[in-house]
Structures are given as C-alpha cells and as structure tokens.
Amino acid sequence: MYLHDTVLGIIFLSQTAVGVLGNSIFLWFYIFTWFNSQRWMPMDSILTQLTLTNTIVLLSQGCPLLISYFRTGYFLGVTACKIVFYIQRVSRGLSICTTCLLSTFQAVTISPSNSRLAKLKVRALKFTHPSCLLCCIINMILEINVPIYISGSRSRNNTHTSGINLLYCYREKKFMEIVILPSLRDILCVGCMVCNSGYMVFLLHRHHQRVKHIHSITLSSKTCPETGATQTILLLVGTFVSAYCISCGFILYKVYVTHSGSWVMIVTTFIALCFPTISPFLLIHRCIQILRPCCAARWRPNVRSQNKL
C-alpha cells in the first residue's frame, strides 16, 4: 500500500465518519424531540429527508473510495460500478432538490401576512410530504440512463483515454444524454435557492430595522424561532451553493482538460462531501435550542417538589 493511498484513505475515512456521525446525532435529536413533544411539524419531513440523503451521499461516495485506497486496487465490477454511481447521482440530485425545497418552504413560512406568499403558506405546508416524494421520483427518472455510460473498473496501469476516471470506475466522455436534464435541474434548483436566500435576507434585514429602536435587554437578547431557523437555513444554502460551484468548476476542468490527472476527481469528491458533512452540525445547533424548553419543562416539577420539601 502506497503512502499516498493511505493518506487519502485516512482523509476520506475521517470525512465520512464525521459526516455519518453528525447525521446520526441529528436524527437522534429529532426522534427525541418527537417523543417529548408528540408532534411532527411539516418542515421536519424535509429535514429528515435531507439528513437521510446526506448519509447516503457519504456512504455511496466515501465507502468505495475507502475500500479502493486501503485495498490498493479496483474492486468493483461492471454491475457494481453502475449501481454505485447510479445511487451517487440520485442521492446528489435529491440533496439539491431537498435543499431547494427547504429554502422555498422557509421563505414561504417567514413571509409577512400582507404578502402574496402568505396566501400560499397554509396550502404549501400541506404539500411537504408529496413534494419530498416527488423529488425522489423525479431524480430516479432523470438518472435512469446513467448506468449505460458507466464501464467497469480498470487497472491503474491501464491508460484509458476514452473515458473519465472516477477513481474506481470509468465514465464515457459521450454522456450529453445524461447531463442535459440533470444540469437543468441543478441550475433551476441553485437559482431558486439564491432567490429564496436573497428574499429571506431582505426580510431579516427589514425585521432588524423594525426592532432596532427597541432597547429592552429581554427583547433584544432573544431571537425568535423563525429568525433562528432562517439564519440556519441561510447557512445551509450558502454552504451548499459554495461547495456546488467549486465542485462544478473542477468537473468542467476534468471534462475539457485531457491530461488533468486523478487529483481533480479527488478534490472534487472531497468538496462534494463537505456539505453532507457540515450540514448536520449546523442543524444540531437549532435542534438543541428546540430541546431546551422540553428539558426546562421536565426539570420544573422536580424543582417545585424540592422547594416544598
């Protein structure tokens, strides 16, 4: 085993382990919150799907790389390469659509009562479950042609120039049939996220200007739940858009530069896994703030009983 492979294996192992652990902790927080409050909010379905999708992204991209680096060889056959890459593409597209859904529903939720979006607020929140299911179906259909253009793994010593090296599989360069519709999906979703983020930033700025004259410590030191949730979603969207744009730049470089080397795909994969690794920890902070009232309510009876004694 080469030192280069060992170092890369340790890097991807750490990234995958941290990301899976973070998503698992966030799911545990949600289960704990549900058992305490016994209610399921409409946005919870989108957050749960995003967490599960990020876990699949980490496992489908991280595990093959780990086995490939630590075994110092290509271990996947033709069928395995097609299945693994199809799962990667579907989970990646589902992550984009789910993040777009999250920003859209949050923008509708915090919209003022006198705006046009306020009329769609109640109706839109009823369609969270169908929207999540529709995203899954659409992405599975869009990526249905992906396995056709994926070939099996080859030896490291084989200079295969007719395809794009995916570190453990190869993809044919003539793949316009499978990138046109997914690219349109990505452009629409990213554009929608940018518009939603701009709208939410505008609403937060206007809200800040309205409460700026309030000098009470009790009012100014607390942040309403809607504002805190919006700030968290803005961080999520900003992280996703940044990682997506950078990874797209490296992918275009890999496609149009013949002798680019495998380092481009290594950096691209690392950047692509940054969002599913970081996002659960941004959400955990909000989840802890949601759990505080539940914990406080549990402790209050004990404190009163001790005072009576």
Score class of each variant (00 low, 15 high):
residue 191 G to E: 08
residue 126 K to H: 07
residue 191 G to Q: 11
residue 161 T to K: 14
residue 158 N to W: 13
residue 106 Q to A: 05
residue 98 T to W: 04
residue 196 N to Q: 13
residue 112 P to S: 04
residue 172 E to F: 11
residue 129 H to K: 15
residue 156 R to I: 06
residue 178 I to F: 09
residue 180 I to R: 12
residue 199 Y to M: 13
residue 203 L to C: 06
residue 189 C to T: 08
residue 176 M to S: 05
residue 126 K to A: 07
residue 101 L to Q: 05
residue 161 T to V: 12
residue 97 C to V: 14
residue 204 L to S: 10
residue 173 K to P: 10
residue 173 K to H: 12
residue 210 R to P: 03
residue 100 C to H: 02
residue 161 T to N: 11
residue 164 I to W: 04
residue 210 R to S: 10
residue 172 E to S: 14
residue 133 L to Y: 15
residue 147 P to Q: 02
residue 205 H to K: 15
residue 134 L to F: 14
residue 149 Y to T: 10
residue 139 N to C: 11
residue 113 S to H: 05
residue 184 L to P: 04
residue 117 L to R: 00
residue 158 N to L: 14
residue 166 L to S: 00
residue 169 C to K: 09
residue 125 L to G: 06
residue 107 A to Q: 01
residue 117 L to V: 00
residue 153 S to I: 03
residue 149 Y to F: 14
residue 190 V to C: 08
residue 193 M to L: 01
residue 113 S to K: 11
residue 142 L to Q: 02
residue 165 N to T: 05
residue 176 M to L: 05
residue 184 L to G: 13
residue 104 T to C: 11
residue 139 N to L: 00
residue 206 R to F: 08
residue 110 I to V: 13
residue 160 H to F: 12
residue 112 P to L: 00
residue 119 K to C: 01
residue 109 T to R: 15
residue 120 L to Y: 12
residue 178 I to A: 07
residue 194 V to D: 00
residue 125 L to I: 09
residue 133 L to M: 13
residue 139 N to I: 00
residue 200 M to F: 00
residue 197 S to Q: 04
residue 177 E to R: 15
residue 150 I to C: 03
residue 193 M to T: 01
residue 206 R to N: 13
residue 121 K to C: 11
residue 134 L to H: 03
residue 177 E to D: 14
residue 125 L to N: 12
residue 167 L to M: 10
residue 189 C to H: 02
residue 206 R to A: 12
residue 203 L to P: 06
residue 173 K to Y: 06
residue 152 G to K: 08
residue 171 R to K: 15
residue 194 V to L: 11
residue 143 E to K: 01
residue 114 N to Q: 03
residue 115 S to G: 05
residue 104 T to L: 13
residue 137 I to L: 14
residue 188 L to H: 01
residue 143 E to S: 09
residue 193 M to H: 00
residue 147 P to I: 06
residue 160 H to L: 13
residue 143 E to Y: 06
residue 165 N to W: 10
residue 185 R to G: 11
residue 171 R to G: 13
